[in-house]
Simulated scan of single mutants.
Amino acid sequence: MTTDQLEPMPDDWQRALAIVAHPDDLEYGCASAIATWTDAGREVAYVIATRGEAGIDTLEPATCGPVREREERASAAVVGVSSVEFLDHQDGVIEYGVALRKDIAAAIRRHRPELVITLNPDDTWGGTYWNTPDHRAVGRAVLDAAGDAGNRWIFPDTDAEPWNGVRWVAVAGTDSPTHAVDVTDGLERGVRSLMEHRAYIEALTDESPETYVRDLIEGFARQTAERFGGRPAVTFRLFTK
């Protein structure tokens, strides 16, 4: 394992927008950083491409979607996020393309963030597990739409005016991080945030939900500490716009 030290994330910003495919995508490791940022007085909003309606095998989509939406809003509130939007793309079959880029560019124009956050768009997790089509499509579209949002000639018919103020896109869950956030103070709320996805977690594992969540979130943060001055951290690959 590489021990190259990670750089601290920039902190000279006020507004961030996190855009991911599913309810729970942000809670699997990123929410502790968001709690740390909102504690510092920064504004963070969420945009979720689907309602996660295909995510629980024992629940039909029409029942599952509202459950997962409620869980996502509750998990966001734990880390100080009150603005949660759903784009209503169909879970499991999101297609990368112009329509997705437009929806995301429109969201960026509405929220006018300096920092945009998304999830790993690479083919794999760690070179071992194949990434899902939704993660790949949304992550790639976010990186593209961050530029689209500032070009008045691309998607000129969105409700909001062009926004060229995105300074960085931060990708969580990547195998090649460059930066990190000290989550010493936000770690417990990161755990509690993922715990709000109880219906999803109980369908996913026979393990105690609290044990599963705590081991996962605290484990990732501790693992990163050796690359960040011994401090528990959440990592990102940072792209400068």
Rank of each mutant, 00 (worst) to 15 (best):
P121Q: 10
A199Q: 10
T240P: 00
A74T: 13
A76Q: 07
L17C: 06
T128N: 08
P162Y: 02
W130D: 12
D4V: 15
A145N: 11
V78H: 04
A141L: 06
N151S: 06
V183T: 04
P61L: 00
V84Q: 05
Y212A: 12
I117S: 09
A31E: 07
L87C: 08
P162R: 02
G55F: 09
R109M: 09
D103C: 12
I104R: 04
A203D: 11
G65E: 03
G229K: 11
V79K: 07
W13Q: 06
G127V: 13
A233D: 12
L194Q: 13
P156G: 11
V67Q: 07
G147V: 06
F220Q: 12
A62G: 14
A221S: 14
T205Q: 09
V213E: 11
G173R: 07
H111F: 11
T118R: 12
R231D: 09
G147E: 01
V93T: 15
P113S: 06
A170Y: 01
V183D: 05
A172Y: 11
I108G: 01
W163T: 10
I217G: 08
A105Y: 09
H89M: 08
G190I: 00
I48Y: 03
L238D: 11
L17N: 04
Y96T: 01
G150N: 08
A145R: 14
T50A: 11
D206S: 15
A170W: 12
A221E: 07
S82L: 01
W130G: 01
D215V: 15
A49K: 02
I48R: 02
L26D: 08
S32I: 04
L143V: 15
E218W: 09
S82D: 14
I108H: 03
G229Y: 10
D215K: 13
A137R: 03
A233F: 07
V234I: 09
A49C: 15
